[in-house]
Design a protein around this nucleic acid. Structure first.
Length: 626
DNA sequence: TTAGGGTTAG
């Protein structure tokens, strides 16, 4: 351990030794040196007390802190010495005793800005945002705008990002503007974050701040990340383009890439994703664990697991997120056994799984129908890894068991669970009830679902289909009326296809696309061709208030069919077709695309809400199990 | 005294 030579006669030498030990990460040793200092030379108390308080704070040792407090009182350094006073407050806040800090603060006759800032920061650290804001406000109103105020503003904004109270950020913002406090990009970036993550969750306000500020890399990265994290992929990608073009020479870095790759993953834009990956490689950032994991995730979610695997190998220090991303990737593509092999590899490498890893593992089992493996890991996660299954794990299990026909076991799991089951769990059970035609259990699940989320049309449709398949037409009619009475609308399904870097979106039966006439006539011929090859339209996924003929025409123009037709017309012959669908792919489209893949000799990859379908030579990678 | 941005599930 480094310890500079102490000259016992010089008090400053002792305080330097305490501070050195503290900054080298050994607060306990720092406190020991402090004690030795006092024995050797009582005059060392004054300079060494503040670093000693900081050492107690770093060690979160309340007992040591209280002793120091006593010492400060007896020697008269508290409350007269401002350095000791601010360090004392800092100590109490760090030890999570803000009320003791407050008592001490009230004993200080006229606290200076440093002391007030310490107090305000401490409050913020303990999530006591209102008292922090009050002090911050008082500080700004009373004094001149100084560097201390700026530090306090930073703390205040970062706290307001974590507090669910709309208005706090804007009131702080207004206060700063009114005072004319000159804040740097660091503070404004924190403000931007506070607008977007705080109570209001106001991305528009964040964007306004962003547009008017002097931007640095962090500003661009923050705004891009905020869009990406909130699912606004197109905005994130557009902003990334702006950064490159008009960013004023600001170079993107690893953080930019991990944020923008998230947007690609979400949007499924393989072409843009590849371009950005190339850039990552050129800049030598493949080994970076954040960037690398984002690349893995991007390729997985854009349909290229083998590319994801290659990118994974390049990551120098893989962490639990990297492994989980890869497991998820294999799982989404229906490669359950490979996902489990990666999971084995992960454990052999010494990496411990976490809560999310087990979601990935169980989801992989569920997508591939690996019933016993799923049961095993569900039990083992707690037994061997001490991770208590949560709603997400239960959801995977209900899905897995339900589809395999073990409905009683699935229902049993739900009932024995301590956590309140969410809509995803009851939804999984309801879907299973449809597959296995269990009307009674379907009604139980649907009842729960309507309580949890009465506006989701999907559940009504499912239940209605279950009734229809059981020939319970009166109940079908009852459902239809219920949907009508409650004013529930089906969210529009859409599919998208990327062509030359541009994303084309198709809605059911939409006529917005400039090529729509050609697309419809092409699709018409295509459907005729596959009907000759044996395809029979299946209309069971359409709401039952249409007659058969209407149903058939509704199914004919489903968005995924439009998207596939568009891609076949426009893409380079032989290239892989990628379609992204915002809902679960319907069973008629699933059948049709299998035929299309055979007739056209093309590979078609469809990403739906939860997984991938690779259509090739007339069959699908999901094995019709989805 | 204080110090801004990123990756894994559903």
């Amino acid at each position: 351990m480094f310890l500079r030579a102490v000259d016992p006669s010089r008090p400053a030498s002792w305080s330097a030794a305490v501070a050195d030990l503290l900054s080298s990460g050994d607060p306990v040793a720092a406190l020991a040196v402090f004690a030795a200092a006092l024995r050797a030379n009582p005059a060392a108390l004054r300079p060494a007390l503040p670093p000693a308080f900081r050492a107690a704070a770093a060690a979160t040792s309340l007992a040591a802190g209280r002793q120091l407090h006593l010492l400060a009182l007896r020697s008269g350094l508290f409350p007269s010495d401002p350095f000791s006073a601010s360090a004392l407050l800092h100590m109490y806040h760090h030890c999570r005793h803000p009320s003791d800090a407050r008592k001490a603060f009230d004993e200080i006759p006229s606290p200076n800005p440093v002391i007030i800032t310490a107090m305000a920061s401490g409050y913020a650290r303990n999530s006591l945002f209102y008292p922090s804001l009050a002090l911050f406000r008082a500080l700004l109103v009373s004094g001149s705008a100084t560097a201390v105020d700026e530090a306090a503003a930073l703390v205040a904004f970062s706290a307001s990002a974590r507090v669910s109270d709309r208005g706090i950020t804007s009131s702080l913002h207004a206060l700063i503007a009114k005072i004319g406090l000159d804040v740097d990009a660091g503070v404004v970036n924190t403000m931007l974050d506070a607008y977007a993550k705080g109570g209001g969750r106001d991305l528009g306000a964040a964007r306004k701040v962003f547009d008017t500020m002097d931007k640095d890399v962090v500003s661009w990265n923050s705004m891009i990340a905020l869009y990406a994290q909130n699912g606004l992929s197109a905005e994130a990608l557009r902003l990334y383009g702006n950064m490159l073009n008009v960013g004023g020479g600001i170079r993107c870095n690893a953080v930019t890439f991990s944020a923008v790759l998230l947007a690609c993953a979400h949007a499924g834009t393989i072409q843009t994703g590849k371009r950005i990956h190339n850039q990552v490689v050129r800049m030598g950032l493949e080994e970076n664990v954040y960037v690398g994991t984002s690349v893995v995730d991007m390729y997985s979610k854009c349909g290229r697991v083998e590319m994801a695997r290659k990118a994974f190998e390049k990551i120098k220090e893989k962490n639990v997120l990297s492994w989980s991303a890869l497991i998820t990737g294999y799982g989404m593509h229906g490669h359950g056994q490979q996902a489990l092999d990666i999971f084995d590899e992960m454990r052999r490498s010494g990496q411990n799984p976490n809560y999310i890893t087990f979601i990935s593992v169980l989801a992989a089992c569920s997508h591939a129908g690996l019933l016993d493996k799923g049961r095993y890991w569900y039990k083992t996660m707690k037994k061997k890894f001490g991770i208590e299954p949560g709603v997400e794990h239960l959801g995977c299990m209900v899905d897995l068991l339900g589809r395999a026909g073990c409905l009683d076991e699935a229902y049993g799991l739900i009932k024995e669970m301590k956590i309140k089951p969410d809509a995803a769990i009851w939804g999984a059970l309801l879907s299973a009830c449809r597959i296995h035609k269990k009307v009674e259990l379907a009604e139980i699940s649907a009842k729960r679902l309507f309580e949890l989320d009465a506006t989701n049309s999907g559940y009504y449709v499912l239940l209605s289909n279950i009734y229809a398949e059981a020939g319970l037409w009166k109940d079908v009619e009852r459902m239809r009326l219920m949907v009508k009475a409650r004013g529930i609308e089906k969210p529009p399904g859409y599919s998208s296809v990327e062509l030359k870097g541009k994303t084309h979106v198709f809605y059911v039966g939409d006529k917005i696309h400039p090529q729509h006439k050609e697309i419809y006539s092409y699709l018409g011929k295509l459907l005729e061709t596959i009907q000759e090859a044996g395809y029979v339209p299946n209309t069971s996924s359409v709401l039952h208030d249409l007659d058969e003929e209407e149903k058939e025409s509704a199914v004919r123009i489903h968005s995924e069919k439009l998207a596939v037709a568009f891609a076949l017309m426009n893409q380079v012959p032989g290239s892989i077709i990628h379609v992204i669908k915002n809902l679960r792919v319907c069973s008629d489209c699933h059948t049709a695309i299998k035929f299309i893949s055979r007739i056209s000799g093309r590979e078609i990859i469809v990403r739906d809400l939860q997984r991938f379908h690779h259509f090739k030579d007339g069959s699908c990678s999901c094995g019709d199990y989805w």
